[in-house]
């Protein structure tokens, strides 16, 4: 441990916050952990924490942890501090805090004397857990995941998360490239994989009201995406998403940018009331928002490029 040298000691840290349900936090972060060693960037603000993960310039994921999810949230920084760390280590460390019997709240503090992220269990007088995770100056994130709806009309559908995951898993064998097609007449979504074999999965809007919860598309649109990136968007779902029968929203924006949004519950199971920073009891909305952005494959055969 190195000692503090700057005059930081007088200042409050950028952030001190407390979570009561480590398990939910692990669920939310694990859903964007598609490989074992993966770097993430954390961005702190007065609204909460955003965790950003990126791969190959083609896939980006964000976890939004709003300040309302925390029992305490004291933010004292100016601007929006950002730092990089290993997502795997953060998840593994949080996991050690969630050992059975260790259900106490966890305090998260940044920065430590050597710019570490500090975790500490609070509330149990005779046992204490702590972790210090080294952070680094973040790589510049390519910010061209800018998502815009095409021509001011939304092209989007909402489907049960479990169905989306299952469909993407089924598309594994045909090949490395998957086409997602949406058409207004008849309103439907078609996933098509061609490679070792062909596989087409269709979600017709009218056939089953349970299947597509929402659908919006006024002209036919189709883009191809790398299978491994599509798979990353659903492969690490926590089981709570299935148990709570959540839906996922899929949108295709300008240039074919694919946005997939999931909701992950971070509430402690069986806990009726939760008093958050705002002092409100609001268990029902203790949700972390997860967003994935996938760029389409560069392909001249795209039917509709602007």
């Amino acid at each position: 441990m190195s000692s503090s040298t700057s005059g930081r000691d007088d200042d409050a840290p950028d952030l001190i916050c407390q979570i009561d349900c480590v398990h939910g936090m692990v669920d939310a972060l694990s859903s964007v952990r598609w490989k074992r060693h993966q770097d993430a960037v954390l961005e702190l603000s007065e609204h909460g924490i955003v965790v950003i993960v990126e791969e190959s310039g083609c896939l980006q994921a964000k976890v939004y942890l709003k300040r309302e999810l925390f029992m305490e949230y004291e933010y004292a920084a100016e601007g929006r501090p950002r730092f990089g760390l290993s997502l795997g280590l953060l998840v593994d460390c949080l996991n050690t805090f969630s050992a059975p019997g260790h259900s106490s709240a966890v305090e998260i503090r940044y920065p430590g004397p050597d710019m570490q992220l500090l975790l500490k269990s609070v509330g149990s007088p005779d046992s204490c857990m702590y972790a210090e995770i080294r952070t680094r100056i973040p790589d510049t994130i390519s910010w061209d995941y800018h998502f815009e709806h095409a021509a001011n009309t939304q092209v989007t559908f909402t489907v049960k998360s479990a169905v989306l995951k299952e469909s993407i898993e089924d598309l594994e064998w045909p090949g490395s490239s998957i086409q997602i097609q949406m058409q207004p007449d008849p309103p439907s979504v078609i996933f098509k994989g061609e490679g070792h074999g062909d596989l087409e999965i269709e979600f017709p809007y009218y056939a089953n009201t349970e299947l597509l919860i929402a659908f919006q598309c006024d002209q036919e649109i189709a883009y191809r995406y790398k299978y491994k990136f599509l798979r990353a968007t659903t492969s690490n779902f926590p089981s709570s998403i299935m148990k709570e029968n959540r839906g996922s929203k899929v949108s295709i924006g300008n240039g074919g940018m694919l946005k997939i949004q999931h909701l992950v519950s971070v509430a402690r199971p069986g806990m009726q009331y939760f008093r958050n920073v705002a002092g409100g009891a609001q268990q029902p909305s203790r949700i972390a928002y997860i967003e994935f952005f996938v760029k389409p494959e560069e392909d001249e055969n795209n039917m509709n490029d602007a």
Partner: peptide, 9 residues
């Protein structure tokens, strides 16, 4: 990269 520990008193 990381230190994780637990103390029982």
């Amino acid at each position: 990269l990381v230190t994780v520990g637990s103390e029982f008193r």
